[in-house]
Design a binder for these strands. Structure first.
Lengths: 234, 234
DNA sequence: CCAAAAGTGTTCTATGTACACCCATGC
DNA sequence: GCATGGGTGTACATAGAACACTTTTGG
């Protein structure tokens, strides 16, 4: 449960010490304080070497993805989050003396969850991808790549809902999209299109706030969010 | 040079025999006899176990991608082909008794090249992805996934040129697209759009054939083939 | 009654799609 | 001169983008 111990688990994964080392790392995104953030752990004793992506303890009998999922559950308490393989980094220049192969996954956790769960993560901290601290190896680039992938997936996939609680207002959904894409969207067009797509459905509840109460919606997991690709050449 | 010996190299990569085994495999696509094909090797002695994706000899000091590139050069004689990481397969169920982790790359080689080079590949053979032979482990699924990825990349990327020789006619280019996408395209629309995109340029030469000679074009590597993604929600 | 956020349609523009005929060469 | 593939433009339909005011609640 404590991430300080978890950070040291990386030595577990050593397979042949001066040949190749295999590890599984995770890039965890969430929305916090109205910003998109990534979860990092201190790399050394309270981070004298900077910060790093959480590393999964790699049970030789366990699948790669399960290891990543288990790591995220330890960090956040959450099961069943959105989890996808990002890339396998295995360039020789990544580390001196021995080759380090990192299979990296990326995950999205819902906005509601971290507020209670972050405490459990001990030394873990959330950073906005635009203001990353010093990080070990190529972890900065990995995070930037994960962000590109997230933005990209958002364009042709219904992945935005993975960052929201079960019920949400259309404004909250729009803000999520705006935060990740880094641009303002038109309210009327946004609403029309997302409702026409049929991937969300209204609930009976409304959320009271400062102004007029807002209808709450829910994602329909049964809805197929079909990919409309615009071809470069038809 | 001979792929029979190369096939047996896979045992090289054993890192810890009953724990985890790491290998690099490649899915090589090309156009042959007016069809899209994949390169496979016999899995056992002249394929009693079926066929398999070529496996790279994995030098511990070499990067993953370089290993894949070296493998393709041995098989086809070609350097500098299109090469991209596909996925890392590491599910526990892939093989009994020990975990096999396969970092898989996919490659495209130009249509002109194989005609001379296939002979060098010894036991290697080309199969259309719709008529694959018996293959070991999950290699069939890997190939199907690679095909989806190729089709997908074709939609938002100028990757089609990687399967063509340096000079090509517009009809050849269109046929390439049709073969991979598996659908007919409109000639006039295709020409207009690809010329407007500015990613190819005409050459002085023409290709003589059965009918009217066709102008030869060349891919402009400097041209940025920008991704026009149609968002699911704006 | 005022502030604050929710909700709602229409017009214009750009992009995609469908479609049929003449042209240059080899035999 | 005919068969074969190369080359060309226009009209219609669909999708995207821009835009401003009314509604409902809490204080």
């Amino acid at each position: 449960m404590n991430t300080a111990t978890q950070a040291s688990i990386s030595t577990n994964d050593k397979i042949n010490s001066d040949q190749a080392e295999l590890e599984v790392r995770v890039v965890v995104f969430s929305l916090l304080a109205n910003r998109l953030k990534v979860l990092l752990l201190p790399a050394g004793e309270s981070a004298p070497d900077g910060w790093m992506l959480p590393v999964a303890s790699l049970d030789p009998r366990q699948a790669l993805e399960s290891s990543a999922a288990a790591c995220i559950e330890r960090l956040t308490g959450l099961k069943e989050v959105f989890l996808e393989q990002l890339y396998t980094y295995g360039e020789a220049e990544r580390q001196l003396n021995h080759r380090m192969i990192s299979v990296v996954y990326f995950a999205l956790i819902p906005a509601a969850a971290y507020s209670t769960q972050t405490q459990h993560a001990g030394l873990a901290r959330w950073f906005p991808p635009e203001e990353l601290p010093q990080a070990i190896m190529d972890h900065q680039e990995i995070i930037q790549y994960a962000l590109r992938r997230l933005r990209y997936k958002l364009e042709y996939t219904a992945v935005g809902f993975e960052l929201l609680p079960e019920n949400f207002t259309l404004s909250e959904l729009q803000h999520t999209y705006e935060l990740i894409l880094g641009e303002k969207l038109d309210k009327r067009n946004f609403r029309r299109r997302i409702l026409e797509a049929g991937i969300i459905e209204g609930t009976a509840d409304r959320r009271m706030g400062e102004g007029r109460p807002a209808q709450l919606y829910r994602y329909r997991p049964d809805a197929v969010a079909e990919v409309k690709a615009r071809r470069l050449f038809p």
